[in-house]
Amino acid sequence: MTSLISPFPLLDNHQVPLVLLGGTLCNARLWQPVIEHLNVSSVQTITVSGADSAKALSQQLLAVLPPRFYLAGFSLGAIVALEMLAQAPERLAGLALLSVNPLCDAPANAAGRRNAVQEAALSGVGSWLSATLWPRYVAPDRLEDSALHHTIVQMAQECGTETFACQTEIAITRADHRAALSAFTAPVLVIGGAHDVICTAGHHQAAVSAAPRARGLTLPDSGHFLPLESPQAVATALRNWIQESYHAQKSA
């Protein structure tokens, strides 16, 4: 992966780590460009796997994570982040939701989601992703970006179809946690891509409207995969959010 020079000095998390949750068919590669730009003292990336519901996975993560942390989730990771908020809001120093849909999944989507897992297993997850999801994943002017395409396909292949099957069940069974957002008093950052056709502006606004201390940000040159499409802009927003969250905690 290309090494980037961070535009920022090291940001001390003050012993409160930043935890980053990836999306469907994503691993640590999703966050690497953001981390290199962000330059924080303590960060942990987590692949969403090991359970077939957001509730079960959140319980597993909360059992091993530090008592207090900043939490940022992308796409499916944002769904898990909202579940973690619902279960243990006192553990979160701040919450960032990237490419988020805070609503329950429509029951009619379940069959299509499970069929997609079967199709990916038959044709190979990389080939399946390229044919079905890639055209919807990024902004139109990034569709010919071979390096970006390669990274997203590589992550999918490294995750594999077993992980995809578990992640699909998490998406199907997710809960609407806007009530938990409305009760959360720490800073909430919601970032969306202007060209995201998966998690739309309406979805992002639903999250922003629910949280009393939410700030919404739309990245004009990004689609769904904004951590890879606009890593420096994401890093800048996350850095500001961490600093805001820290100062809010100090003044509380």
Rank of each mutant, 00 (worst) to 15 (best):
S41P: 05
L92G: 02
F8G: 02
F74P: 00
I198H: 04
S245K: 03
A206Q: 15
E158C: 12
A51Y: 03
R178W: 03
T185S: 15
S99Q: 07
I198P: 00
L18I: 08
P135E: 07
P17I: 04
M84P: 07
L30G: 04
T218H: 04
P7A: 07
R91P: 04
S245R: 05
A111Y: 10
P102N: 08
T47L: 02
Y137E: 10
Q87N: 09
T236R: 13
R239D: 05
S53G: 07
Q15T: 14
I170A: 04
L98R: 02
N13L: 14
V40N: 00
G94D: 07
C159P: 01
H203P: 01
V138Y: 05
L62G: 08
E83T: 01
E169G: 04
H150A: 15
K55W: 13
Q167D: 02
R174Q: 09
V80I: 14
S146Q: 15
K250D: 11
G202I: 06
R215C: 11
V117Q: 01
E119T: 08
G202F: 06
I152L: 15
L38G: 02
A235N: 06
S41A: 11
Y70M: 10
L76F: 06
D196E: 09
L219K: 03
P33D: 01
I5F: 10
A237K: 06
L133V: 13
T200P: 03
A72Q: 02
Q60H: 12
T168S: 14
L95K: 00
P89I: 03
E229G: 05
V43A: 15
A179F: 02
V208A: 03
V197S: 14
R142C: 11
I191Q: 01
T168M: 05
E144K: 11
E244Q: 15
A165E: 12
Y137D: 08
Y246T: 15
G22R: 00
A171E: 13
T218D: 03
S130C: 12
A88R: 13
H14N: 15
A210S: 10
S245A: 15
M155D: 12
C166N: 14
R215N: 10
A110H: 05
R91C: 12
E169Y: 05
Y137L: 15
S230H: 07
T185I: 11
R239S: 07
G50K: 06
R29F: 09
P107E: 04
T2V: 14
L143I: 11
Q44A: 08
L85W: 05
I35T: 10
E158N: 14
I242W: 09
L95F: 03
T236Y: 10
W134Q: 00
F69D: 01
I46R: 11
V188G: 02
A210D: 04
G50A: 07
A81V: 04
V188C: 10
S182H: 08
Q205N: 10
L95G: 03
L65C: 09
K55I: 12
G23F: 01
V188S: 01
A116G: 13
L11M: 09
L189M: 09
L143H: 14
P227W: 00
S123D: 13
G23R: 01
T173L: 15
L20S: 06
G94I: 02
Q249M: 13
I46E: 09
R68S: 14
A165C: 07
L228A: 07
W128R: 04
L30T: 10
A139R: 01
L95P: 00
I191W: 00
G23M: 06
T132L: 02
